[in-house]
Design a protein around this nucleic acid. Structure first.
Lengths: 152, 152
DNA sequence: TATTGTTATACTCTATAACTATA
DNA sequence: TATAGTTATAGAGTATAACAATA
């Protein structure tokens, strides 16, 4: 990424430091890189990041309303409809009547969805292990999550 | 973000840890949060992140080809056309004939563009200072940039 | 043949307004 | 009145294919 001290000057080298050595830029590049690898890792399962998050969250919190799940994930409820429609069409989730509120849908994993999430979690565990290895260990990962949390 | 040990249990609290305590998710949230603040900070200048990066990069590397600038920023040359058209329409940049290659456009800041970039850099410096303050100092910022670099 | 800039196009993600049925 | 889910729609950002001019 940056010039190596002592290396032969490349005549096509651009001066990039003042543009790229800033938090926002590096954050964007790192996020795009990680999401790219996530897509590759989950290609066999045909699952995008937001879909994985929704399935995992529903699995840990069965019976919650659509709007609750969507809000936690930072997805507008209007945009969450198509996402959950896709998961439902694949037989992974289902909408059931919510207790005491006939407007709301309670979300659950189907039996097939529960099995699918198990496989997805295994893929995610491998993916996270790869991230940790790149970072240099679990301490480095914890440091990163802490620093990222301070930016929110 | 996470449950506080000893706090009274919230009946609406969702179990989110296994979904959100992962590098990719936190990276996405932090990037969205930082970009949101960037847009606010640059609202008065009507400048988006990619536009700021392009202006700063052209300012540091006058005369480079469109494709060079676009590639460094990770923008497809096809999509860079509209971006540079916008900056040119505002009188901030200009395309000139490139030396020895009549296919290429060499990019430069206009005089007005140079003055604009000075103001933009000042805003960016303030913005970066805010990021550093949130992170806890320049050491924390350097640690973050190092860790982010390992994920690319 | 390959590359530069460009246009057209499509797909994803995101944001808002408005509707319905309930509350 | 307000809320949950939905639909429609519009705006960004991003990806590929194809073209004209030039290398």
């Amino acid at each position: 990424m940056s010039a190596v001290p002592g290396s032969v000057a490349d005549e096509t080298m651009l001066e990039t430091g003042s543009t790229t050595d800033i938090v926002g830029y590096r954050l964007r590049r790192a996020q795009l890189s990680v999401f790219q690898r996530f897509l590759s890792a989950f290609e066999a399962l045909d699952l995008r990041p937001a879909e994985y998050s929704a399935l995992a969250l529903i699995g840990d919190n069965p019976g919650r309303k659509q709007t609750e799940i969507a809000e936690i994930l930072g997805i507008k409820r209007a945009n969450f409809v198509a996402l959950i429609n896709g998961l439902e069409a694949r037989g992974l989730t289902e909408r059931r009547a919510a207790h005491g509120d006939r407007r709301a849908n309670a979300l659950y994993l189907t039996e097939e969805g529960a099995g699918f999430v198990e496989k997805a979690r295994a893929v995610q565990d491998d993916f996270e292990a790869d991230c940790i290895a790149r970072l240099g260990g679990t301490d480095a990962r914890d440091t990163l999550l802490d620093l990222l949390g301070r930016l929110c």
